[in-house]
Design a protein around this nucleic acid. Structure first.
Lengths: 125, 125
DNA sequence: CTCGCGTCTGACGTCAATGTCAGGGTCCAG
DNA sequence: CTGGACCCTGACATTGACGTCAGACGCGAG
């Protein structure tokens, strides 16, 4: 498939796909005229990349751990694997931090509800 | 206290404090010579602001919900309260997304471990 | 008084992922 | 074979929360 179709199937912009390639996250074959061609499995790969971006990994970090994704069947470099574990822990910490923020907001929400109409105080959604 | 001390007590840079003031998140009284003066309670306020930043809120959003923080005792605007609830939900969604990413990384980690030295496969830390 | 550190304002630099535009080829349906 | 939709490269623009620097003033110790 061409880049436009991959973009729409994976839910990202064409610009982003070219950027991913520039960053070494995605590769493509080229047609005779120089247009990028992709196979179906690239769709999943792009979605996975997006997931890592959403988890806060940078392009460089994603590039570092990609060997572990592409060929978990062979012994990937210690650095790549170490990075993978580090990022997992970073996500863990981030989640705990978010949990604390959510807790703080919950307190605020309750405090404010108590001084508003007292509507739907403890009513579950 | 002056800005430098607030910065060190709250664990942020002087630059950040001036930025917060510029964004309407923090206020200060001024000495005769124009230097900013803060009270002790600003320390907590700055820490709280940091927590919201860490949770992914923007300056503008923080400014919107701050009325709920300062005076939960009086009926704050519907918009501010609504925003508070929205942000809580956004954090929730973000946490779930992070959870999925962590899960994906866990699968990768296991797959890679299986093809490495097979060291410490299931050993707890 | 002065030395050195803190503070002031204002402005430009940064970084990363992406938007956007220009100027030019490609491809296919009609 | 032509028009419109798609693609190419290259480059500049954007956004947000700061970093950093310049030039000037404030302040307390010695």
């Amino acid at each position: 498939m061409r880049i436009g179709e991959l973009a729409s199937q994976a839910g990202v912009s064409v610009r982003s796909l070219r950027y991913y390639e520039e960053q070494g996250l995605l590769s493509s074959t080229r047609s005779a005229s120089g247009q990028r061609r992709y196979t179906d499995k690239e769709v999943e790969r792009v979605r996975f990349i997006q997931r890592l971006y959403a988890a806060g990994l940078s392009s460089r970090t994603i590039a570092e751990v990609l060997p572990c994704v592409e060929s978990p069947s062979e012994k990937t470099s210690d650095e790549a694997f170490e990075r993978l574990v580090q990022e997992r822990e970073r996500i863990d910490r981030h989640m705990r931090e978010l949990g604390r923020a959510r807790e703080a907001l919950d307190l605020l929400i309750d405090a404010n509800r108590a001084h508003r109409g007292l509507t739907a105080c403890v009513s579950p959604v």
